[in-house]
Design a protein around this nucleic acid. Structure first.
Lengths: 341, 341
DNA sequence: GCGTTCGGTGACAGCGTTGTCACCGCGGTG
DNA sequence: CACCGCGGTGACAACGCTGTCACCGAACGC
């Protein structure tokens, strides 16, 4: 009943209609104590009559809170890894009355800088970032302003901040060792952009395994290390080149899900069913395709990041934490193919 | 220089430091005109010295704007369809100074209701929803309050609102006709939750094709229509049941990406390479696996939804629009397998 | 030379909410 | 019976910013 308000209805309207003071109405709609049940009911009914909704800007302002949003910066939501990460963070944050706002950088530093700037302008309460930048100055600026920044997947080296990363070296090493144990002597490594620490760590783990196997591996194994295979197209092309070479690898380690995708496309294209493959990152159809992978839990990573955010929000001066999440090798066949004689 | 501010620095601090009035500082940081370049530089430098950042709540409040966020409600971000949708919306909205806040309902009506409520509390400017609800009362409430709601993928029947959907019937019909043309007489239909309009439309299209082919198809084809295959596990189980039946289908139409995934798992598990398959929704590895699909552009859908939001924000009383996006059949092999003799 | 315009600047009153403090009346305490 | 404590309520001043309006001086037109 009553004409739909032309402008927005305010708490004052509700208070007037309920015949109470502004403050009492505020207490009622916020579920605070010190309000008689009867009064509260009166206010709530008036509010619902008017279709009232608290103005969050005004509320935030009055309470001296920047906002209730946490920015999540990822490379590309189309990558399920990031999507799961975001979802893990979002659901954990919701439990703490925080919402998530999203931005994709497409792995471009420039774009990411714009994103961070946008988040700053939105006065986000904290930021969770899977950063593709090498210099994290924009994040440092946020930190200085008291906005917690938690890095996921990739820890910054030029900034002291909470971070949560995978055991990249360990996972890659396990993959390499698995292939070596299977008798492979020529194993190709398909890396991502050189600047990404994840890639470098994975290469380190891979290298460690290869070095430990000196004598058992071809001396020239380093020639089979390729980088820059950030998207499936490049990965597919590089795979083709590797396999067309004079002395092709008998196994491939794809250092992330997109590289794996590219390898699979190329192998399928040429009907190659003998080259062994282990990929970093699990994916939906890996089971169907029988792809052996280094798996981990992206959702847990997001949730953990959210927890770090909440903890730092509670105590800004606590020591920064570096969480390293385990990976596990899931064998499904492609990594167990014997080397071609 | 100067001690890092204990609390937040305000525009007043900046103004004081620059020796100008509050209003002039405001004009300078907001890039408004009527400020001498020299003055602007002075203010900007003071702002950067102090690490100043405009308080968005205060700014929004003063300008009488609810917020700069648009809520995007989806089923589950882990589903690439939703992830792309969200990304499409986000990047289009960014061009209009709007940010996206995300919520996943896990396709649960209860959860979705909570989400919408949360969005309302955050005073979002508009909502884009891939709703799994049958009754859209919570959205109607938002609309009444002047918050534009745009439905994607699934249009509500109990609410007049801008919507953007796929040509579900057309896509499903094309898939069925394709299989029929290939000689199949027993085609199974794997549906989603019965309550989802997308599923019903796809079934309608499928039915239309089958009906048009009366005589050519088995009279009992309706027995091969199954629903509730919302996740891969159920889809896989149902597929198994269908194929184990006395008179199994020679082809399967999976009505969404998760159903397709389930079917693929089950076919792989039993080493079945003869049953034909067409899936609704494209996916990364479809090419590798040679899966024929009804494809569409989720990102475009999100972008289009964002455009509708912007338009309605500009003119709240314009007629609501229903956009129907085309689908296209992409043949890759699985849909072209001949029926078993 | 006087009125007019206009770029540049500032004072001030909100925007809608919440924190603080004060107040009122009632029941329990000594 | 005076006092205190406390549940319930309200007045009022913030919160940090922007819109409005007013003001000042310099450039301009006639």
């Amino acid at each position: 009943m009553g004409i739909p308000a032309s402008g927005a209805t305010t708490l004052a309207d509700v208070a007037a209609r309920a015949g109470v003071s502004l403050k009492t109405a505020s207490r009622a709609v916020n579920g605070e104590q010190h309000v008689r049940e009867e009064t509260r009911a009166k206010v709530l009914s008036a509010a619902s009559d008017l279709g009232f909704q608290l103005n969050s800007s005004a509320s935030l302002l009055a309470r001296g809170i920047a906002s209730s949003f946490v920015g999540v910066v990822t490379g590309d939501l189309a990558n399920p890894f990031y999507a799961m990460l975001a979802q893990g963070a979002a659901s954990e944050l919701r439990a703490h009355q925080l919402s998530v706002t999203l931005g994709s950088s497409d792995e471009s530093s420039a774009q990411e800088e714009v994103l961070v700037d946008e988040l700053a302008r939105r006065s986000v309460r904290a930021v969770i970032a899977a950063s593709a930048m090498t210099s994290h100055a924009p994040y440092a600026a946020l930190q200085r302003r008291g906005v917690p920044v938690v890095f996921v997947d990739r820890a910054p080296t030029d900034l002291d901040a909470d971070s949560i990363v995978l055991d990249n070296a360990g996972g890659a090493r396990a993959a390499a060792e698995h292939l070596l144990a299977g008798g492979h002597r020529r194993i190709a490594f398909l890396g991502d952009f050189e600047r990404l620490p994840t890639y470098r760590e994975r290469l380190d783990g891979f290298t460690a395994a290869m070095d430990a196997a000196t004598g058992a591996v071809d001396a020239g194994w380093r020639e089979l290390v390729r980088e820059g295979a950030h998207d499936p197209e490049v990965a597919a092309r590089v795979t083709g080149e590797l396999l067309d070479a004079a002395n092709p690898p008998t196994a491939i380690f794809a250092s992330n899900n997109r590289a794996t995708l590219g390898v699979l496309r190329e192998l399928a294209r040429r009907g190659d069913t003998t080259t062994a493959l282990v990929g970093f990152d699990d994916f939906d159809l890996a089971e169907v395709l029988g792809v052996t992978v280094v798996a981990h839990d992206a959702r847990a990573m997001g949730a953990q990041a959210a927890r770090l955010v909440v903890e730092r929000l509670a105590d800004p001066r606590r020591d920064t934490e570096l969480v390293r999440l385990p990976t596990r090798l899931v064998t499904r066949g492609s990594g167990e193919r014997a080397p071609r004689a």
